[in-house]
Nucleic acid binder design. Structure first.
Lengths: 220, 220
DNA sequence: TGGTGCATTTCGATA
DNA sequence: TATCGAAGTGCACCA
C-alpha cells in the first residue's frame, strides 16, 4: 500500500463526471492497483476512487491517470507532494460477521412461538417460481403462513411478500396463505402498506432471540 | 488526519458483531474522530469503521476503543505499530457531480421525440397522492403517458410505476394512462415484469442524449 | 459469469 | 428532524 499526502485536483470520467478542486488530500494506492482519495472528514466513502481491476500510469511526476477496465478514468493532478510512503501489508484474513438477515431467519425458524403458539415450520427458503419465501409455516390450526424477514422493513419488502402471497394463494393446496412481515425495525410507510394489505407486522428483538438460542449459532 | 500502520485485531459491536483477526492494516483516524480500517485490497469500503460522531479513547498504548453515539464500539488491539503519523489536511471544498438520474429526466423531458413523434410534455415531477411521476406527457393523439426514469431499471422501479398507473387510471380526465419504464440499463426480470403489465421499456443512451443538448446543463 | 438482494450501507433531497 | 430513494454503490450468494 502506498500513501501519498498531496495538494491535488482530481477529475473522474465514467458513469458520471466528477471534479475535485485543488486541496490537500490522502491518496491511497492499494496493492491491487485500486486508488482511494480521502479528505479529513465525511464517512468511509472516499471523495473519489477507482475500483479494481485498474491500472495507474504516472504520465509525469505531477499527473497520474488511473484507467478502469470499462474505460473509466481518474486523473489526479499533483501540485505539492507532502509525503509519499509505501508499506507491504500482506493479504488480510478477512472479516467475520454475526447478526445479519440470515441469522434472523435461523433464529426465528427455531422460535416460531414468537409468531404464534403451536406453529410448525414447513421449511426455510420455501421455493416459488419468483424466488424463495424466507419462512413457510403452519398455525396450530393448520393454516399456511408465509413470513418475509428483513433487518429493516421497507416498502419493497412488503411488495416482495405481496408477490409471493399472490402466487402462493393460486395453489389450492396452500390457499389461503397469510402473510407476516417480520423485521428488527419496520418503517411507518411499510407498516401502513402491509397492514392495508392484510399483512401482519412483527418487530423482532434480535438480542432477546439470540439470548434464547442454544449457542450453536454463534460464530465466535 | 492520523495514519497508523499496525498489526492489529479489531472487534466491532453495534448493529452486528464483527471480528478482524490479527493482521497488518492501515488505521485512518480523521479529523472528525471517525476511524477507518483498511486492508491492502478490496474496494473503497474499509474492513471495519466507525462513522462520526464518535470518540476515540486510547485506554492503553495497545488498546483503542472507539465509541459511537448510539453505543456502538470498535475495539482495536494494537500488536505492533509500524508507523504513526499525523497531518492537517484542512477542510475539503467537496465534489462536483454530473450525470445522475435528475439529469436523465431533464434531458428526456427536452427530447420527448425519443419516446414518440409529436409527443408533448405535460410536466416533470407530476404530483400524485403517492409521490411525483417523473414525466407526464401526451402522445400526438392526445393519450396520457406516465414515464418512470431510472439509471438502472429494476423490479422495484416497475412496482413504483405500476402504483402510479393504478392511481392515475382512476382519474377519468387522464385515463387511459400508458406507462413507460425508461432507464440507461434495464434488468431482464424488470423488463419481463414491465412488459407483462403492458408497460413499454425504453433504454436511454445518456451519452447521445447529452450530446444532443445545448450545453446549458453541464456543470463544468 | 450474470442476476438478485442485503448493507454497521452512505448520501442527498424533501417534507 | 425523519423519511425516502439513489449510488461510479460494494458484496455475497446462487444459477
Amino acid at each position: 500500500m502506498r500513501l501519498v499526502i498531496a495538494r491535488c485536483s482530481v477529475d473522474y470520467t465514467g458513469r458520471l463526471s466528477a471534479h475535485l478542486p485543488l486541496a490537500t488530500r490522502l491518496i491511497m494506492v492499494k496493492a491491487d492497483g485500486s486508488v482511494l482519495i480521502h479528505s479529513d472528514g465525511g464517512s468511509y466513502k472516499p471523495l473519489n476512487w477507482m475500483s479494481p481491476p485498474c491500472r495507474l500510469t504516472e504520465s509525469s511526476a505531477a499527473e497520474w491517470i488511473v484507467t478502469g477496465k470499462s474505460g473509466e478514468t481518474l486523473a489526479i493532478h499533483l501540485q505539492d507532494v507532502i509525503s509519499d510512503s509505501s508499506v507491504d501489508l500482506g493479504v488480510d484474513p478477512g472479516l467475520v460477521k454475526d447478526g445479519v438477515e440470515a441469522h434472523l431467519q435461523e433464529l426465528l425458524a427455531a422460535q416460531l412461538h414468537i409468531l404464534g403458539e403451536g406453529w410448525r415450520l414447513v421449511r426455510r427458503e420455501y421455493p416459488t417460481a419468483i424466488g424463495p419465501v424466507d419462512i413457510m409455516c403452519r398455525t396450530a390450526a393448520g393454516a399456511s403462513v408465509a413470513v418475509e424477514i428483513k433487518r429493516r422493513g421497507e416498502i419493497d419488502g412488503v411488495e416482495q411478500l405481496t408477490r409471493y402471497l399472490e402466487l402462493l394463494n393460486r395453489d389450492p393446496l396452500l390457499a389461503p396463505v397469510q402473510g407476516i412481515f417480520a423485521a428488527q425495525e419496520i418503517r411507518p410507510q411499510a407498516r401502513v402498506l402491509a397492514e392495508d394489505r392484510g399483512i401482519r407486522c412483527v418487530t423482532l428483538d434480535y438480542e432477546s432471540m439470540r439470548g434464547t438460542d442454544d449457542g450453536t449459532l454463534r460464530l465466535f
